[in-house]
């Protein structure tokens, strides 16, 4: 942890990793989308609509991974007070919100042919929607203060409170859903998955996670530059 705490060293490594990660991500997206769209079987029940799953499911996974990253970075910021941890948490939030949005939109696109409506209060969709709300709250909170450190610390506490609450929210939504669920609605995923469907799913998951890495580095660089600029301007003003 502390080995990477020096921003100069961190960005030297990150800048070296960035092009590799970008190429990996592009390659995984190309191959994953090829398999997902052309070289995988249609579902016996869902037809070609199942192909939306390959875009949708990994996005939801990446969205949750972003939240975990945000909470862990927030915790490290509170413990070690290192600015890179704060920047990492801030960097992860909009990326996670973006993945959450992709997941919601693709879920809705999938729901239209499957359910005959753009939105159903399905337990999974509802949980993801609430995750989106948590991201919005976090982003609003960290940007609501004049002092960036203050915003970062408040955000870190909120991310941790949210992390404790996510399982409770998920559980309560499942509970709510079983109480109110109309019996005929098709579940999004069957219990098992055919191997030829698993390959594109895993490729796409790898693509999303490497894209997450690429965007994290890019956002960290820009957030760091912003902080640096602020510091230099303040220093120049107090000369």
């Amino acid at each position: 942890m502390h080995r990477f705490a020096n921003p100069t060293r961190f960005f030297r490594i990150a800048n070296a990793v960035l092009p590799v990660l970008a190429v990996v991500s592009a390659g995984l997206f190309a191959s994953g989308l090829y398999y997902a769209l052309f070289d995988s079987p249609a579902d016996y029940q869902q037809g070609d609509t199942v192909r939306i799953m390959y875009v949708h499911v990994p996005a939801a996974w990446a969205a949750m991974a972003c939240y975990a990253t945000m909470a862990l970075a927030g915790a490290s910021f509170l413990i070690w007070k290192h600015v890179l941890a704060d920047l990492a948490a801030r960097a992860a939030a909009p990326i996670g919100a973006g993945f959450t949005l992709i997941s919601l939109v693709t879920g809705s696109l999938w729901g239209q042919p499957m359910w005959g409506t753009w939105w159903v209060w399905d337990a999974r969709l509802t949980s993801v929607l609430i995750l989106f709300f948590l991201y919005l709250g976090y982003i609003a909170l960290v940007n609501a203060f004049d002092d960036p450190d203050r915003g970062g610390r408040a955000g870190a506490v909120l991310a941790l409170v949210g992390a404790v609450n996510v399982p409770i929210i998920k559980f309560s939504v499942d509970w709510w859903n079983t109480l109110h669920q109309p019996a005929s609605v098709l579940r999004m995923n069957g219990p098992s998955i055919a191997p030829e469907m698993l390959l594109p799913l895993l490729l796409m998951a790898g693509a999303y996670f490497s894209l997450f890495g690429v965007m994290m580095i890019l956002r960290l660089r820009s957030l760091y530059a912003g902080r640096r600029l602020r510091q230099l301007r303040l220093a120049a003003a107090s000369e």
Binding site: D146, D147, P148, D149, R150, R227, R230, Q231, L234, S238
Partner: peptide, 11 residues
């Protein structure tokens, strides 16, 4: 108080 250093709002 010994050798105190303080920063406020990144300043």
């Amino acid at each position: 108080a010994t050798d105190i250093a303080v920063a406020r709002g990144g300043r």
